[in-house]
Amino acid sequence: MKIKITTQEFDNIINSIKDKYKVIAPVSIPYAGQYSDTDVIRYEEVKSINEIEFKRKSHFTAKEVVMPVTETLFYYTEGEYKIPTIDERKMLVFMRSCDVNGLHRIDNVYLKNGKEPDYYYKRLRDKVKIVLIGCEQSFRNCFCVSFGTNTTEDYSLGVKVNKGDVYIEIKDDEFKDIFVGEKADFNIDFVTSNDVKVTLPEKLNPLEVAEAELWREYDYRCIACGRCNLSCPTCSCYTMQDIVSRENPRCGERRRVGASCQIPGFSLMAGGHDVRVRNGDRMRYRTMHKMYDYGERFGPQMCIGCGRCDDVCPQYISISTAMNKVTQFVKSKQREE
């Protein structure tokens, strides 16, 4: 069902259901960007559709809704522990097609990667209702078409704003009595081409690629800041922290904190051995995981082609370029054989 309402009517609706639904969307936060006079676009709770950033790509993704950067798993005291409660409201989360596909990638890791789903991830994920935002044109550094993530059918609501009106596609029966308006004929926009294109090899030898000289370029270019991981919709690694009370060392809390495979120490093992010391080896690990390793296990490739890692890298390192270099390397090896 497709309807049209005014922006004011949309605001009235989301405020009338705020006791049951939390509306989360990309918003522009002034003076919080990379430089002092720039903004940052990240996900926050909103009360009006006018707060939502539709025209620009967010710097950070919706994965923070289901994977907080810092999350307390439990509090402990003496012989007892307590799991913290969460907001019981469902979450209407505005996402672009690539980010919806990114959420599916994380679902594989946390819900289907073992005998039991991750309890903390699942209790947040089960509350998410996806509100799809279309893309009228490709953004800078995007290569979603190469990975087939430029479209999706997995959403409860599709939203398009035009000249003061909000066009809504309702796919979830849960919202048919909530969003009521004039019938309308429209389509959510999906991009069909990108300026950046990535071609993956049909078959490769991962050991040959691991020893390729192309990774040595990143030994000096990469500064191991980890910004690529923190902005990525599909990076899901974390570390654990125990925060102990000064007054009573038997009391405290355990936290799950987002981690980065690009930062020194991530691959450090017991005994002090580190399997990836050089920055180029870390870049190789990340690139191959996005374009090969994950796909071998779950089917689709882990990368969704959003280009955010390219956007935020202070050294202008491009993962799309790295992937194409791997393809060129594999082709050259095949020609030699």
Rank of each mutant, 00 (worst) to 15 (best):
E9N: 11
E9P: 02
P26Q: 06
A32K: 14
S36G: 01
T38I: 04
S48M: 11
I49F: 01
E51Y: 03
E71D: 15
Y75N: 14
Y75W: 10
E78H: 14
G79S: 15
T85S: 15
E88V: 06
R105F: 00
G114E: 05
K115R: 14
Y119C: 09
Y121K: 12
V131H: 03
V131M: 12
V131L: 07
I133M: 15
G134S: 10
C135R: 06
S138M: 00
F139H: 08
F147I: 00
D154V: 07
L157H: 02
V166C: 09
Y167H: 03
D172M: 00
K183R: 11
D185E: 15
V191Y: 10
L200Q: 10
K203P: 07
K203S: 14
A212E: 08
L214P: 09
Q241G: 07
R246I: 13
P249T: 11
A259M: 00
A259L: 00
S260D: 03
I263D: 02
P264Q: 09
D281M: 05
R284S: 08
R284F: 06
M288Y: 04
F298L: 03
G299R: 03
C303D: 09
I304H: 02
R308V: 06
C309W: 08
Y316V: 10
S320I: 04
N324A: 09
